[in-house]
Amino acid sequence: MSDGARTLPAAAQPPLVRRSHLLPGLAALGCALVLPHFANAYVTEVATTALLYVVLCLGLNIVVGYAGLLDLGYAAFFAVGAYTTGILTSEFGFNFWLTIPVAMAAACLAGVIIGAPTLRLRSDYLAIVTLGFGEIVRIIARNLDITGGASGLVGIERPEILGFKLMQVQHFYYAFLALALLAVFVCLSVERSRMGRAWFYVRYDEDAAAGIGINRVSAKLQAYMMGAVIASVAGCLYAAKMTAISPESFTFNQSLLILLGVVLGGMGRIPGVVLGAILVALLPEVLRGAGTYRPLVTAVALLAIMLFRPNGLWPDKRG
């Protein structure tokens, strides 16, 4: 046995970004930073939506890609964030920034409420329960007075940074870009940490993970909570951008689109998930020319991708 004082090169911690990814990553970031200066309002708007999906897909990827739990009601956590900001700013006059910590706490709570009783279920049953949860949240939002019923909330306060009010499309583009970068940083940090590895252990072999000393219920619950928090922050910013939200923004369809982004790009791997998220946002716009055939063309395109690249466009090397 080694004396432990010997430092092995192999024992060094891996860098946050692999060297081979550094240059392409910086190039992509550079393009993203200058995009609004060359694109018109329409393109910037679509790009903003793409960035929203990047954040949501990265959040869902923690649940689906890292911990291996199928979640069909992820839009519920997005709704929790959006409605928290909506209600607190329009009804109680809160400052936008103060609504974020409240939304994060609410999302954590929602994550525990859905997680605690269901995490002992196996994947298929878990998927059904999460689907139900997503619908429950949407229907509650539709029927309560405080959430504005079916017509939703209007007149949500726009955020200010140091006296500068976010108003135009470009402002929100940069706000979502900042949030997406933060989400990437958070995911990279957690992915290679003790809890990130625990999620992978649980995903690959739950019994072996338990046998080696990992509390699987706690690990899954934490994956749920972290995914929920990321979606809720995206929801806060979404509400501020739209200034009006209604239950129809948080349907099962929305949950499916986010899941589609995760699966399409390649579960478990950040570059793949970012790519998938962008595709999910862009496909409907690119295919606008197909007119009434758009859903059909979209479906065929997606089927083709899954048929020829079953592990996603940019799959996890780990398989």
Binding site: A10, R197, F200, Y201, Y204, D205, D207, A208, A209, G211, R318, G319
Partner: peptide, 10 residues
């Protein structure tokens, strides 16, 4: 029962 898709060190 190893985590086959992860590295030996992990």
């Amino acid at each position: 029962r190893l985590f086959k898709e992860m590295s030996v060190l992990e």
